[in-house]
Design a protein around this nucleic acid. Structure first.
Lengths: 83, 83
DNA sequence: AGTGATTTGTGCGTATGTATG
DNA sequence: CCATACATACGCACAAATCAC
C-alpha cells in the first residue's frame, strides 16, 4: 500500500499517474487539508521533485489543491472547488 | 529587436515573459503557421530549454498553439481558437 | 531580532524516449 | 539509418515566503 504504485512503462507518464493517485485520494476524502510536501511526495513515490511538481500542477490547474509559498499545499474544500 | 528582451529581475518569471512575447506576436499576426522549435527559442532568447517549454505549455493551454511530436509546434488558426 | 529550517517557485543542464520525415 | 523535434524524467541550485525557535 506504500509500494511504488507508479509504473514507468505504463501508458501514462509518471506525473499523470501520480496526479491520478492524489486526485483519487482527494475525491475519496482520504487526503484532506494538507498535501505532503513536494519533496516528501517525490521520496514516497520515488520520482524526481520536478515530476511531483508537475503532478501537483495538474491538480492545481483543476482547482483541487492550492499552493502557498513557504507554507505548503492544501486541498481546496469541496464546496469551493470549480465546476 | 532581437535582444534578449527577457529580464530575469522583472516581476514575471522568464517563462511567463516569453509566453507573453509569443502571444503578442501571434495576436498581431507576426507569427503564423509554424512556431520555432523549442531549442531554437531557447537559444534565441537565451533561456534553458525547460524554460522555453514552459512558455509554450502556457500558450498550448490557452489554445493558441498546438504541438505535434516529431513535427513541430504550430499556431492554431484564429477561427479555431477557443473563447 | 535574527537565524535557520521548511516549502513552494524558478531556472539551468542533461539524458532518454517517441514520433516524424 | 539518421536528423529533427516534442515529451518525459532526473538532478541540482538558488530565490522567496513562511514559520519556529
Amino acid at each position: 500500500m506504500d509500494h511504488a504504485a507508479l509504473d514507468n512503462d505504463a501508458l501514462d507518464p509518471l506525473y499523470v499517474q501520480l496526479a491520478a493517485i492524489l486526485r483519487g485520494q482527494i475525491e475519496r476524502g482520504e487526503l484532506t487539508r494538507r498535501v505532503p510536501a513536494v519533496k516528501a511526495l517525490a521520496q514516497q513515490y520515488e520520482v524526481a521533485i520536478g515530476t511531483a511538481e508537475r503532478a501537483l500542477a495538474i491538480l492545481k490547474d483543476e482547482g483541487l489543491i492550492a499552493t502557498s509559498m513557504g507554507r505548503g499545499t492544501f486541498v481546496v474544500p469541496e464546496d469551493e472547488r470549480p465546476k
